[in-house]
Every structure is written in C-alpha cells, then in structure tokens.
Computed example of a mutant assay.
Amino acid sequence: MKVTVTFGRTGVVVPCKEGWTVRDLIQQATQRYRKLLEQEGDFLVRTHHVEYCDGGILDPDDVLTDLVEDKDKVRLK
C-alpha cells in the first residue's frame, strides 16, 4: 500500500508496511519531505495533526490499514 502525504502544496508518496500506525506514516513522510528539501539535520518539521484531504483528523496510535486504502491522500498540518 502507498499513501500520498501533502505538506502544503508539496506531496510525497510513502510506501507503507503492514502493521504501521499513523505515527509511523508521519515519521516516514517527514523524513522523505526533508530529503526532498535537501535540508537534513536541524531542519524542523512540526506536525500538529494528520487529516484526510476532505477533513477528519487521524489518531497517531491507530493502525494505518484501518483508516486508509491504497493510493489515498492525507495531509500533514
């Protein structure tokens, strides 16, 4: 399964492993976003919450496959 995560107008595709939580998705998406910006180290990305593109906040402790399907889009705020 893969999920597209948007940071403002920039999106990154994250391949997700079975058993991942929303928190795992946040960590992987943030890491990929930092690589995209080519700013490792002290570059800070703060995530207040994850939500569906049409609204609805996801709980970080929930299992990802219970909430999203392959090729779904979510955004980090």
Rank of each mutant, 00 (worst) to 15 (best):
Asp70Val: 05
Val5Phe: 00
Val3Phe: 00
His48Lys: 14
Asp54Pro: 06
Asp66His: 14
Val22Glu: 00
Leu44Gln: 15
Gly55Val: 06
Arg34Gln: 09
Asp66Ile: 07
Arg46Pro: 08
Val3Lys: 00
Val12Lys: 01
Lys2Gly: 02
Gly41Cys: 07
Thr65Gln: 13
Val63Trp: 10
Leu64Ser: 11
Thr30Met: 04
Val50Gly: 03
Leu67Lys: 06
Arg23Asn: 13
Leu36Gly: 14
Glu69Ala: 12
Val3Glu: 01
Thr6Met: 05
Arg75Ser: 08
Cys53Gln: 13
Lys73Val: 13
Lys35Gln: 12
Ile57Arg: 13
Thr10Ser: 12
Gly19Glu: 02
Thr47Ser: 13
Arg23Thr: 09
Thr10Met: 10
Gly11Arg: 00
Ala29Met: 01
Val74Thr: 02
Val22Thr: 01
Lys77Arg: 10
Met1Glu: 04
Tyr33His: 09
His49Asp: 12
Pro60Phe: 01
Glu40His: 11
Lys71Leu: 11
Arg9Leu: 10
Leu58Gln: 04
Glu40Ala: 10
Gln39Ile: 12
Lys17Tyr: 07
Cys16Ser: 06
Asp59Tyr: 09
Asp54Arg: 11
Gln31Val: 08
Val68Lys: 03
Phe7Gln: 00
Ile57His: 08
Cys53Thr: 14
Gly41Pro: 01
Gln39Met: 14
Pro60His: 02
Val14Glu: 00
Leu64Val: 07
Leu76Trp: 05
Gln28Gly: 02
Val3Trp: 00
Lys77Ala: 09
Thr47Asn: 13
Val3Gln: 01
Thr65Asp: 15
Thr10Asn: 11
Arg9Thr: 10
Arg32His: 06
Leu58Ala: 06
Thr21Lys: 14
Leu64Tyr: 04
Arg9Asn: 11
Leu36Asp: 08
Pro15Phe: 03
Asp59Cys: 09
Val22Ser: 03
Asp24Leu: 02
Val12Tyr: 00
Asp66Glu: 15
Gly41Ile: 03
Phe43Trp: 11
Arg9Val: 09
Cys53Met: 15
Val74Gln: 03
Met1Arg: 01
Asp72Glu: 08
Thr65Ala: 14
Pro15Val: 07
Asp54Thr: 14
Arg32Tyr: 05
Pro15Tyr: 03
Glu18Tyr: 12
Asp24Met: 04
Gln31His: 10
Glu40Tyr: 10
Asp42Met: 12
His48Phe: 13
Asp70Phe: 03
Glu18Gln: 15
Lys35Leu: 10
Leu58Thr: 05
Lys2Asn: 06
Gly19Leu: 00
Gly19Met: 01
Glu40Gln: 12
Leu44Glu: 15
Ile26Ser: 06
Val13Pro: 03
Gln31Arg: 11
Asp42Phe: 11
Arg32Ala: 14
Asp24His: 07
His49Pro: 03
Gln39Phe: 11
Leu44Lys: 15
Val45His: 04
Pro15Arg: 07
Gly19Ile: 01
Gly19Asp: 03
Pro15Cys: 04
Gly8Glu: 02
Asp42Lys: 13
Gly56Leu: 02
Gly55Lys: 06
His49Val: 09
Tyr33Phe: 13
Thr47Trp: 05
Gln39Glu: 15
Arg75Met: 09
Phe7Asp: 02
Arg34Ser: 09
Asp42Gln: 14
Asp66Ser: 15
Val45Ile: 13
Ala29Asn: 03
Arg9Met: 07
Cys16Glu: 08
Leu76Tyr: 07
Asp72Ala: 05
Lys73Met: 12
Thr30Arg: 01
Thr47His: 09
Arg34His: 05
Phe43Cys: 12
Asp59Ser: 10
Arg75Phe: 06
Val5Met: 00
Thr6Asp: 03
Asp61Cys: 13
Asp72Val: 03
Leu25Gly: 00
